[in-house]
Amino acid sequence: MFRFITTRFLQSLFALFLVISATFFMVRFVPGGPFTAEKAVTPEILRNLEAHYGLDKPLYRQYLDYLGSLLHADLGPSFKYPNRTVNEIIADKVPVSAELGGISLGIALVIGISLGTLAAVKRNTWIDYVASSFGMIGISIPTFVVGPLLVLVFAIYLGWFNASGWYMPADRVLPAVVLGIAYAAPISRLTRGGMLEVLHQDFIRTARAKGASEFRVVTRHALRGGLLPVVSYLGPAVAGILTGSFVIETIFQIPGIGREFVNSAFNRDYTLVLGTVILYAVLIMGLNLVVDVVQAWLNPKVRLEA
């Protein structure tokens, strides 16, 4: 186990290095730069600006400088927000997204897994149809429709919540519900699919034959195997949910990091793009590692090998 994790860590470190390098050069080849503006900047001022941020140096030099500062955990200054560093922006905004993501993930897992399991156990009954319909509706109605709809109903007509913002605890409710449902839907579908695979297997019949209660059969025996696809899905999904959603954070005006993933690219804020990419890559790699460990735990036949 220890060896597995260290090997995996080293592999991931190398993969992270590749991600950083690829991103560093990719952003530079995209048309437009951080100072491209509607009102043109004179060549002299542009030169001053580039000199200020070290963009006048040869690209390989900038790359080495960037790697050097990364060793000191310094992600550099933001181009778009001159008085903020990328470290500060990430430190400010990640907790907000993670809080919202954590609540949503809870909602998604509870609703998704219980509905999916119920649908599989009560297959082809009205319970299955209701649960499955919820899943399909959740998948087919995008968050940019559900979000404004809930705001119209609960904030504007009923007046229970603010329309958006991140000021009081109640402001968490609507965005967390929207985001939670968005993830609950696919989770419920995957759970149902995974459970159906398992429920017909012989060991479940054996367990039933031995007189175990249906509840026990499902929770103790079937879920272990049935959740396998969900667990695979959760690696990237949790990384996505914890780093915030661009759509949700925009609709609800939430000061999270999710918006920066897209906006930094649009602003050509090179350092912030790299900062968010590193954050996401670390999460993805970490979570996929966790997923592999969990899968091995769920299924003793799977050996951890690196």
């Binding site: 404004p148 705001v151 119209l152 904030a155 504007i156 007046g159 603010n162 329309a163 958006s164 913002g165 925009t250 609709i251 609800f252 005006q253 918006r259």
Partner: peptide
């Protein structure tokens, strides 16, 4: 000065008195 990027969000905030 509230930083609200999205026009639709902003209009809804106006309606709730935010």
């Amino acid at each position: 000065f509230l930083a609200v990027e999205n026009q639709d969000t902003e209009e809804r905030m106006f309606r709730t008195g935010q």
